[in-house]
Amino acid sequence: MKNVLIAALFLCSGFLLAQEGTNMKEKITPPEKVLFTFQKEYPNKIPVWSMEYVGDDNDEVRYEAKFKTDKNQEALAVYDNLGILKAYELQIPLSQLPAKAQAYLKKNYAAKAIKEIAVVVDYKNKTTYEVMVEKDSRFYDVVFDKNGGFDVTIEKN
C-alpha cells in the first residue's frame, strides 16, 4: 500500500510539473540565423536563451536572449525565427525614467510597489517605458510613451 501511495504521489507531482512547464519559457539553443545576428549585434555577450510561442494562435516563435550589458545591467533581445530583432529591453533605474512618468508613478503607486523598470525599443524603433508594479498581490506593467506620458496598464498573468 505504501508503494502505491508513493507511486501516486510521483505521478501527480510529475503531472503538475508538466502542466506548469507548458506555461514557462523553454530554455533552448536558437537557430543559426538567430545566433549569428545576436553575436553580430552583441559581441562577447553570453546570453541565456529561451523560446516562447506568441501570436493569436501561438503560431509564432520568439527567441529571447537575456544578458548583461557592459554596465552590468540586465538586457533582453527578442528575435523571430529568421534572426530579425523584434525588441530590445534594458533595465534602468527610476532616475532614468522621464520625469512625467516618475510623477505618475509617485501619484498612483507606493514606492515599494515598483518592482522593475525597463526601456523597450521595438522593431519599428518605437521607444516605450515599462514599469512592473505590484498592487493587491497582482502584477501589472504600466506603460509610458517615449516622453513619459501614460499609455496603458496591463495585468500580468
Rank of each mutant, 00 (worst) to 15 (best):
A103W: 04
A77Y: 05
Q102N: 10
A87N: 04
V142L: 06
A77N: 07
S95R: 09
D59I: 02
K40H: 01
V48Q: 10
V143D: 01
K126F: 06
K2S: 09
D141G: 02
K126Y: 04
N72I: 03
E41L: 11
I6P: 02
K66D: 14
M132F: 06
Q91K: 15
Y104R: 05
T22L: 11
N58S: 12
Q102K: 11
K66H: 09
Y140F: 15
V142H: 00
V54Q: 08
K124R: 10
G149T: 13
D57F: 14
G14M: 09
E60R: 05
P98Y: 05
L9Q: 07
K25D: 15
K135A: 10
S95F: 04
I28H: 08
M1S: 10
G21T: 04
K68G: 05
K86V: 05
V133P: 07
P43R: 12
P47W: 03
A7R: 02
E41R: 03
G55R: 07
G83D: 02
T127N: 00
I84S: 07
R138W: 01
L5T: 07
N3H: 10
L97M: 12
K100W: 01
A101E: 08
V34R: 01
E41W: 02
P93M: 11
V121L: 06
G149E: 13
T37F: 01
I154Q: 09
V48N: 10
S137I: 00
K27E: 13
K27Q: 15
S13M: 13
L35A: 02
N125S: 08
I46E: 15
D141S: 05
A111P: 11
W49H: 11
E64Q: 14
N58Q: 14
Y53A: 13
E60T: 05
A8Q: 03
K2Y: 03
Q39C: 01
V131R: 07
M24I: 04
P31H: 05
K40E: 02
L16D: 11
S13I: 15
T29W: 03
D56Q: 14
V34C: 01
F139A: 06
Y140E: 04
I28Y: 08
K100D: 07
N157T: 12
D151R: 08
A7H: 05
D70Q: 10
I114T: 12
E64V: 09
E41K: 05
A118M: 02
T153M: 15
E52M: 08
V61M: 03
L76M: 14
N23V: 08
A113I: 09
S13L: 14
E26Y: 06
K71G: 00
E134T: 15
K71W: 04
K135R: 14
